[in-house]
Amino acid sequence: MYSILQMIHSYWAYLVLTMIVIASFNAITKYLSGKEFQAIDFRIALFTLIVTHIQLLIGLALYFVSPNGFKNISANGMSGLSSAARLLAVEHPFVGILAVTFITIGYSKHKKKLTSKPKFKVLAIFYTLGLLLVLSRIPWSNWF
């Protein structure tokens, strides 16, 4: 179970990262150029929201079955974790939850805006914050 969840979480992360980059870039460029909000923009924002939430659910399941997550904290305590173990057991999950929270807030707030410029502004701010958080706590050593 652990190895399957880890594989899914790792490969799904590529889709998540790609979608957050696309959604952030789309929102920033269309905000700066003053374009109208269209159905494709809504779909990009929605698909990004969906894939990030799926990644969060996979990650939470992985957190409780992985020897690197909750089990590691239970066995060693917080003070017994190395920096690499702390990244996997504490920082990566916490910052991932924050990133998904920012993306969710951005998606929810953009729906309440009536015109294009404020919609793109909200999406650009919150999705880019989510992207920066994700990039800050990816365990890069496991990716390469």
Rank of each mutant, 00 (worst) to 15 (best):
F144S: 15
I138H: 00
L49Y: 03
L129E: 03
A61K: 07
I97N: 07
M7D: 14
H53I: 09
A85I: 07
W140T: 08
F37A: 09
N72S: 14
T115F: 10
V21Y: 05
L98A: 10
F42L: 06
T18N: 14
P67D: 13
F102I: 01
F102K: 01
Y14D: 14
L114R: 15
L123S: 00
F94V: 11
L32N: 13
R137H: 04
F25K: 08
F126I: 09
T29M: 12
V16T: 01
S83N: 10
I20A: 01
I138N: 02
S83Q: 12
L114C: 08
K117L: 07
K35A: 12
F144L: 12
T115G: 10
A84K: 05
M1N: 11
H53G: 01
K71S: 14
L46Q: 13
K117D: 04
V16Y: 08
N68C: 00
A61Y: 00
L88H: 09
Y31M: 05
F47V: 08
S136C: 05
L17T: 08
Y107L: 03
I54F: 05
K119I: 09
L87Y: 01
Y11S: 13
I125G: 03
G96S: 15
Y11F: 14
G96H: 13
T29I: 13
T115V: 14
L131K: 07
A85T: 03
I125Y: 04
Y107V: 01
F94P: 00
P67V: 09
Y14F: 14
F144H: 15
F126M: 02
I8S: 05
G130T: 06
S66Y: 11
I125S: 06
W140Q: 10
S33A: 12
E36Q: 11
T104H: 00
H110Y: 12
A39R: 12
F42R: 10
I97A: 05
F144D: 13
L135P: 08
N26P: 07
I125C: 03
A45K: 04
V90I: 14
N26H: 07
S33R: 15
K119C: 06
S10D: 00
L135M: 03
I105M: 03
E36N: 05
Y107P: 07
S136N: 08
S74C: 15
F42I: 08
L56M: 13
I103Y: 00
T115P: 07
L32F: 09
I125T: 04
V51G: 02
P139T: 02
L56Q: 09
G80Q: 12
K121W: 01
E36P: 01
T101W: 00
A27T: 06
K112P: 10
N26V: 00
V90Q: 08
L57E: 05
S141F: 11
G34E: 08
V134I: 15
N76A: 13
S79E: 14
Y11R: 03
L32Q: 11
I8L: 13
T48W: 02
F70D: 13
Y31C: 00
K109V: 11
Y127S: 02
S33F: 04
G69D: 07
T115C: 10
T128L: 04
M78G: 02
S108Q: 10
L135R: 00
A85N: 05
S3C: 04
F64H: 15
F37P: 01
V65L: 06
P93D: 09
F102V: 02
